[in-house]
Write a protein that binds this DNA or RNA. Structure first.
Lengths: 206, 206
DNA sequence: AAAAAGTTTGACCAAATGGTTAAATATATC
DNA sequence: GATATATTTAACCATTTGGTCAAACTTTTT
């Protein structure tokens, strides 16, 4: 009973996750989620009362995962460049596996920006906790860069090329899908190099 | 007559632009566009036969503007760092004025990636024409960086922070809207510095 | 000024969509 | 094995939404 319930609920959550991420809240259809889960549409409403409730459930789960990963990396007590490396590796892989994720997040925060603060608490994400350690570490290693710039530039370079895949693929690779993928993987290294070179310029000479 | 027609058509196009950009194709409602244009819903269909036609019209216009701006900058025969400066200035302003634009583009290319190639031709955007001059210029100035990395990192750093505004604003500025805006403006300079420092590392010593 | 052509409107329609409900089926409890 | 409880289904509903149409109104043409 609890076993089966878990099974159905999981199936629904998984299907909903896929559809919502690919189509967004507005584009997603309850019927499509039901079909993908191999169940009746009424059953969706039996487990999750409404589309919105289902959506919130899915989004919360995703944000928790992303947030906790980010938190772990940012709070590790290692050299800046190792943090960068860990971050780039982890998120490149995550994004390659979930190419619709960035657009989904962008879409949702645009659609409902006011709900974001609550979502952060629900997902137990505490921004201060991973900006501050970074700030300390940059100072400790003698880099005078604004930590906000540092973290935002990094996030940008990792996430944007995946979020804008179709454009990038055409703009830089004449639509060649495998060339694009190979390139994104290669960026794991080239981003780290780029950041390293940039940081060099911010080193406080003494 | 032609005067009035222009007036109404323009009003519709402008209203449609606003609504589509903010809500996306799926989220936009023909009624809302009609209301915003101050006209009857039937009139929308009189000028633009269907929602899709109206959407395509709006999107094409936007892409043409963005593309032509990019083309001009990329083909100017000036030092790399001046290109970077021009690009950052122009696009930061564009994005501050149209904060929903990036998400709109992401959304659309995700929703319908196959239509993108046609849209590029319609908007008369020729990717090769602004990648190649950049490639030459980088070589000429003795930087060994992969041009793809260079251009993508730049695009990322300019666009991402605006696309992800609600998150960034909470993550870095505790939700303070004016602090966020001030910061984005300040990035006009800090991005250029960051890129300059990074490029330094790619300089071929001789 | 009459006819023709173009523009605008309100009423209406069919399809899609999120959601409900009562009955049927399976499962657990006694 | 009977009763109660939980799960699943099919039929149905109300609302929303893109779109149509004929009539009314304006403007242009003759």
């Amino acid at each position: 009973m609890t076993e089966k319930e878990k099974h159905t609920e999981e199936k629904i959550a998984e299907a909903a996750r896929e559809v919502f991420i690919e189509k967004g809240m507005d584009g997603a259809r309850m019927q499509e989620i039901a079909d993908k889960a191999g169940i009746n549409k009424s059953l969706l409403h039996y487990y999750f009362r409404s589309k919105e409730k289902l959506f919130n459930f899915v989004l919360s789960k995703i944000m928790s995962i992303i947030g906790s990963r980010l938190g772990v990396i940012m709070q590790e007590d290692v050299a800046i460049i190792d943090k960068v490396k860990a971050f780039v590796d982890l998120y490149t892989d995550l994004l390659l596996k979930n190419p619709f994720l960035p657009n989904f997040i962008f879409n949702e925060i645009t659609r409902n920006p006011d709900g974001l603060i609550d979502r952060f608490s629900t997902a137990n994400i505490k921004p201060g906790e991973f900006i501050k350690p970074l700030e300390r570490q940059l100072k400790k290693e003698g880099y005078s860069i604004n930590p906000h710039d540092f973290v935002l530039n990094l996030l940008s370079m990792v996430i944007f090329p995946v979020a804008g895949r179709p454009i990038i693929q055409i703009l830089l690779f004449e639509g060649d899908s495998s060339a694009y993928k190979k390139y994104i993987v290669s960026r794991k290294e080239s981003i780290v190099t780029y950041v390293m070179y940039a940081l060099e310029g911010y080193r406080i000479k003494q």
